[in-house]
């Protein structure tokens, strides 16, 4: 295939432009974060005297250590349970084809497009009556439920394509249902499971609505919810706010850059299936 010179260079130019627009907000946060705290910097300008100390101050002001731990605990609560339960359900619905599996699957599909705002009000009263308000469980338990439609949908899509002969031969060898699942199917499903894990990690980490409604203490919230509180408290101090925002962004960015190939694949597949 011959690519004309002109075609190739307009393409490159466009790409570079697009990347510039994508990165601009990050650069702006960064440059602004270096201005003396408490000032009101005008636009996009490198400060005369970069204040690297702002990051340290923001780290302390935002109690980053606590926040990281909190988000981590929430992720550890949500992701493994969601992945396990949805893999099991996807296995039963997609592979075992349990009787009545189809209506149940449709019931899950019903929740695929659900905006969280639609259920946030009753969730508040439900979580309150369970006595879980202002604890991390208030985010963890509902999120597992709310992610279930997508997770089951995702895992079913994987299991639907697994050949039945696989299970037949295992059964011949006398494996029971759990062993069949644990020894044969889970290892085979690892690519689908790890993509799901990445997506759920990202969505949990960035969950905002549940965090601000169900948990008042920023130290018990997700990163995103904590950032909301940080903005409320330090909105007065633009450079500090920018520094804090960057710090709160940093963990996801770092993880993304390390696992970027998995992320891109998972996100692309994720939206295709959803």
């Amino acid at each position: 295939m011959i690519i004309s010179w002109r075609e190739s260079w307009t393409g490159r130019l466009l790409l570079v432009l697009l990347m510039a627009v994508t990165i601009l907000p990050f650069l702006s946060l960064f440059v602004t974060a270096l201005h003396p705290s408490g000032t009101y910097p005008a636009g996009f300008a490198w400060p005369a005297d970069p204040q690297w100390g702002n990051f340290l101050r923001a780290f302390e002001a935002a109690k980053m250590g606590e926040l990281l731990l909190s988000s981590l605990l929430i992720v550890l609560g949500v992701v493994p349970i969601s992945v396990l339960l949805s893999t099991m359900a996807g296995f039963a619905i997609g592979h075992l084809r349990v009787p009545g599996g189809r209506p149940v699957f449709l019931l899950f599909v019903l929740g695929l497009t659900l905006p969280f705002e639609g259920v946030i009000t009753p969730l508040y009263y439900q979580v309150r009556d369970m006595g879980l308000l202002n604890t991390r469980w208030a985010i963890i338990l509902p999120l597992i439920g709310l992610f279930m439609p997508f997770s089951v949908f995702w895992m079913r899509a994987h299991f639907v394509n697994m050949p039945g002969e696989l299970s037949e031969s295992a059964r011949m060898d006398g494996a029971n249902l759990w062993q069949l699942f644990r020894r044969i199917h889970v290892p085979l499903a690892m690519p689908a499971i790890s993509s799901l894990g990445i997506l759920l990690f990202l969505w949990t980490w960035n969950q905002f609505l549940l965090a601000i409604v169900l948990v008042d203490d920023p130290a018990e919230r997700t990163m995103s919810g904590a950032l909301g509180a940080f903005q409320g408290q330090w909105g007065t101090d633009i450079p500090l706010l920018c520094a804090g925002s960057l710090l709160i962004l940093a963990p996801t960015l770092a993880i993304f850059l390390v696992f970027q190939r998995h992320f891109v694949k998972a996100l692309l597949q994720g939206s295709l299936k959803g």
Binding site: G100, R102, P103, V104, L106, L107
Partner: peptide, 9 residues
């Protein structure tokens, strides 16, 4: 088949 589905739902 999903007639039964509806009922279950």
């Amino acid at each position: 088949r999903s007639g039964r589905a509806g009922a279950a739902m």
